[in-house]
């Protein structure tokens, strides 16, 4: 309203007064809104930006366990990092875990959601129970599966023994051919219910009349699914994929509990690699470079993803 911008030129004194209070309120509002935001931003900057700057600094130095060399070494650590096959392998392991676990969780979760979307006796109870793996601490989930996978006293080998009618002594967390399946089973066990819950909510929001119309028109199940259901649940599915994808990229706890990255460095993810370098070998400057690489990679993915995915408006 342009009139209120020039209260003095206005002939009506009441309106002038109102306009003046409005401007006053607006300034106060402006201050108020920043006062509310300030403490949070301060904490985020303190824990986010300040260490980040320090990280950049350290990554250009050459601090190791034995040497507190704070002179600047240029790109030394970055060169070393790029040459480190162990680093590239750990990135590859992370990608492998993600590339297998994510689709499996998605498909299994969708199938389960499809099963539970129709009326089924005791549906509430089933859903409430299926939630439980998701809320357990991942390190506890890993510990649980290491008990399950024990070659002698775990139930997995016992069950396999029943099936083959003999004694099974499979070394799940030691045999190089079996560590990946073992870790993936634990990971998929914990997070499939996450996909299930989100997709169940999405499926229940699909317009029933459209499904009925499709079935009257004689569309088959697959056709209905791909033409109507999938587009309808896609926004939720995209977010579920994003959240799980980012979680998988930082995979640490379950692997740590089951194999600690072993045997050798076979199952080492990028997070475990950074932890070992930084906190067991005290290769401080090198780890700083790795941490920066992780942050940069992730930031690019997150920025691209957030632009595409409509997250909670």
């Amino acid at each position: 309203m342009p009139a209120s911008c020039f209260p003095l030129t206005n002939s009506n004194p009441t309106e002038a007064f109102l306009a003046a209070t409005r401007t006053l309120a607006a300034t106060r509002d402006r201050r108020f809104k920043y006062v509310l935001v300030a403490p949070s931003i301060f904490v985020l900057l303190l824990i986010g930006i300040f260490p980040l700057v320090y990280l950049v600094l350290v990554s250009f130095q050459n601090i190791t366990m034995t040497d507190m060399d704070t002179s600047f070494q240029g790109l030394l650590n970055y060169r070393e990092m790029i040459r480190s096959t162990r680093m590239w392998e750990s990135l590859l392991h992370t990608v492998i875990f993600t590339a297998i676990a994510l689709p499996v969780e998605l498909v299994l979760g969708l199938a389960m959601a499809q099963l539970f979307i129709d009326r089924i006796p005791g549906r509430q109870v089933f859903v409430a129970l299926l939630v439980l793996p998701v809320v357990i601490s991942p390190i506890v989930a890993g510990a649980t599966w290491s008990l399950m996978f024990d070659n002698r006293f775990g139930p997995i080998n016992q069950i396999i023994g029943w099936l083959i009618g003999g004694e099974a002594t499979i070394l799940w967390t030691i045999n190089p051919n079996l560590v990946y399946p073992a870790i993936l089973v634990a990971e998929i066990w914990q997070w499939t219910p996450f996909m299930f819950l989100l997709l169940l909510a999405a499926l229940s929001a699909v317009d029933k009349s459209q499904l009925e119309a499709a079935s009257i028109d004689g569309a088959g199940w697959w056709r209905t699914f791909f033409r109507i259901v999938l587009p309808a649940i896609w926004p939720v599915m995209a977010i579920a994929i994003l959240i799980r994808g980012l979680d998988l990229f930082r995979l640490f706890d379950i692997v740590w509990a089951l194999t600690r990255g072993g045997p050798g460095t076979m199952t080492e993810t990028i997070s475990i690699f950074a932890y070992v370098k930084g906190f067991q070998q005290f290769d401080t400057s090198f780890t700083a470079a790795v941490a920066l690489l992780i942050i940069v990679l992730l930031s690019i993915v997150v920025m691209l993803a957030l632009k595409r995915v409509e997250l909670a408006r």
Partner: peptide
């Protein structure tokens, strides 16, 4: 932008956050 920046802070892997924090 601010909202997106804030949520992206959440998505950084913990190991990359905790390493500089540890030094600090």
């Amino acid at each position: 932008n601010l909202a997106n920046w804030i949520i992206s802070q959440r998505m950084v892997p913990p190991i990359a956050v905790v390493f500089p924090i540890f030094l600090l």
